[in-house]
Simulated assay, not measured.
Amino acid sequence: MATEKDHFLFEFSADPLLPCYHVQVSLSQFCNWFLLSDVLKRLKMSARIFRARYPQFEVASVPHAELRRQVAVSQVTPVPRGLLRGEGEEEDMEGPVELVRCVPDLQGLLGSTVQILEEERS
C-alpha cells in the first residue's frame, strides 16, 4: 500500500527573510526564486563576483512585466509595492529581471537554516 507524505518546510534566520517568488521562468521550471538584486545586497557583492564564486546557483532572466503579472496573480506571495509600481526609470521596468533559484544551499549562504518535517499518512 502506497502512502502519501506531507512535508512542512520551516526556514529560520536571524535576519529578515528575503522575499521569495513562486513563478514560472520556463515551461519546466515553476519554482521559488529570489531577485538577484536582493541576494547581491544581502551578500554585499557584485553580480560578476557572485556568478564567479557560485556558478552552481541557477540564474534566470524574465521580463519585468511577466514577473509582475505572475506575482500579481499569486495566492501565496503578496506583491511588493516596488515590484508593481517599479523602482527607478520607466525603461528599467520593461527590461529583464534576474532571478536566482531558491535552493537550500543558497538559503544557507544567506544565513537561513531549513528544517523539513515529514508526516506519513496511510
Rank of each mutant, 00 (worst) to 15 (best):
M1E: 09
I116D: 12
S61G: 04
R101G: 06
R42T: 01
H22V: 03
L117I: 11
S37E: 15
M1K: 11
E11I: 09
R48I: 09
W33V: 04
P96L: 07
L84W: 14
S28T: 14
P16A: 08
Q70V: 03
G95Q: 13
T3Y: 13
T113R: 13
A14M: 09
S13I: 03
R81H: 05
D38A: 07
F12H: 07
D6Q: 14
D92K: 02
V25C: 03
L110Y: 01
S112P: 03
E89D: 10
V71L: 00
S26P: 00
Q24V: 00
R121E: 10
L110N: 05
E120I: 10
A2M: 08
H22T: 09
V100K: 01
Q75G: 15
D38S: 15
S46M: 05
E119D: 10
K41D: 15
A52I: 04
Q24C: 02
E89F: 12
V59M: 01
A2H: 10
I49Q: 12
Y21T: 02
T113K: 07
C20Y: 01
V114Q: 13
S61Q: 09
V39R: 03
V59F: 00
T113F: 06
V73K: 09
D15L: 03
E119F: 13
V25E: 01
L40H: 03
K44S: 11
K44Q: 12
Q75N: 13
D92M: 06
R69D: 08
R68G: 01
V79L: 15
A52F: 04
V73L: 08
E58W: 08
S46R: 07
D92F: 03
V76K: 14
Q29W: 11
V71R: 00
V25T: 08
M45G: 02
D6V: 13
R51L: 11
F34I: 06
A47W: 02
L117S: 11
L35K: 07
R42Y: 02
G86A: 02
A72K: 14
V39I: 02
V71G: 00
V79S: 13
L18E: 04
V79N: 08
Y21R: 05
P104T: 02
L84K: 11
V23C: 01
M1C: 08
